[in-house]
Design a protein around this nucleic acid. Structure first.
Lengths: 252, 252
DNA sequence: GCTTGACCTTGACGCTGGGTCAACCTCCCA
DNA sequence: TGGGAGGTTGACCCAGCGTCAAGGTCAAGC
């Protein structure tokens, strides 16, 4: 007859676990010897190995209790099911491995594919790291706020970026961040921006509302973005003024 | 700015989890709006995704806290280590799958290979299921009590079993379990057993003590086994008497 | 016979990573 | 103006044991 630690050692569990299984009613309490020690027979070894094997497979103790009482058919069915769940867990772990290794690098983790692609294109087009980071953060907020619309908007922007003139404009705008507030190039840039703005207004009617960011975002949100985007760049703030003048001028 | 549930939904965790991370100091408490609601920015999304990814990989929250504060090198090293542990977990899960599917059948799970082989040989030799089960249980107890010696003993027994005469004797002994107590074949069997016993005594000197079960087991343990093995078979009990007579007779 | 150290007993609290109330406040929309 | 959805803190609850605490018991050596 085995003592509790012999039993536990042989099966490869702790003494505490064996007592826990007794408490839970999973493993029947064995006879005691004259001094109150538990004494185990071979059946206890078999039972405990079953319990351990199932528990390690992630089966909750309550379920194990049922299973030990079940007939062979139901037991086999349950084993199949557990096996399936183990297979799922293995797939999950593999996916997690991938995600963990991606942790150190890249935006894939934070953004839907379309948006990540847009960000990658910005970087490829020569936009500064500061600019890319700003865009990324803005898109994270957009994606979180409008999970289904944001990827479509990004796809649209991606299409825009395929046009060389727009790409060039975008890069110039990015550079302007560091220009002096009285840099003469700001005027030319403001012209371009005002023209683009007018064009966008004309196009606005042609598209479904859901496709246009400006229709969905509240004025408050747009203001927030503008403020956020302006960061702290005197040149950009000046640019905003210049564009506003031009737009107003053409409207009156 | 995102509310807590927008943040949680986007990242794919529960609101409760986010608050838990705040409590643990994992995720910095963000600004509150005028009514006390938490408001999150893009950095929070990034941080939370990091936390979630690591937590899902099984990294304890305390460790995640360190990691988020660590520099890129130490972070990369930790990620490697975590990846390794994930790989180990995958191997473990695969092993568990195997063990779970073996649960329904076989003695492999309960016994070292040598002993399982011996049991299989007994069954192949034609020993009854009752007899096999008895042997199995006895060997479980032996293996649990003498983890390193038991497999060697089993190997020895396995060699014995290769001898046709012994194999035959063993099967006959197994059958005798169900004989009537006055079956005349018991006398012949007792002769064989007494002869074998004498032979074993002569051989005893030739072997290292560790190899001989009888030298290691205490008298108490042997008595227990005898009692257990005799089960409740009048024929076997009678057989014990007959053998004892013969052995004593030859000793005097 | 006595000590010592390894084991045994029951009972109770602790830990992780949150889930799940409760009781209340706030926002937004019809 | 009301109601439902969503926010706030605080508190207790869960599995599956680990880990004391406060002893009783066994085997061995002196």
């Amino acid at each position: 007859m085995l003592t509790i630690s012999q039993l536990a050692d042989y099966v490869g569990v702790t003494v505490r676990a064996v007592r826990h299984y007794h408490q839970r009613g999973l493993l029947p309490e064995p006879e005691r010897d004259h001094s109150g020690y538990r004494r185990y027979d071979a059946q206890a070894v078999i039972d405990l190995i079953r319990i351990k094997t199932l528990a390690e497979a992630g089966v909750p103790l309550a379920r194990i209790e049922e299973l030990l009482a079940a007939d062979a058919d139901r037991f086999a069915a349950a084993v199949d099911e557990i096996d399936q769940s183990l297979r799922d867990q293995i797939r999950e772990l593999k996916a997690r491995r991938r995600r963990v290794t991606e942790l150190a690098s890249g935006e894939h983790l934070f953004l839907p594919a379309e948006i990540a692609a847009y960000i990658a294109n910005l970087r490829a087009a020569g936009v500064s790291e500061r600019g890319v980071r700003m865009e990324r953060d803005a898109w994270i907020m957009l994606a979180a706020s409008y999970p289904e619309a944001a990827p479509r908007w990004a796809a649209q922007k991606n299409a825009d970026l395929a046009v060389p003139a727009y790409r060039e404009f975008y890069v110039t705008y990015d550079r302007a961040h560091d220009w002096a507030v009285d840099d003469p190039r700001l005027d030319a840039l403001a012209d371009t921006m005002a023209a683009r703005f007018a064009e966008q207004l004309r196009e606005a009617g042609d598209q479904a509302d859901g496709l246009r960011m400006e229709k969905v975002l509240s004025a408050e949100e747009q203001a927030l973005f503008t403020q956020y985007v302006n960061d702290y760049s005197p040149a950009w703030m000046r640019l905003s003024e210049l564009v506003a003048q031009r737009v107003q001028g053409s409207a009156t």
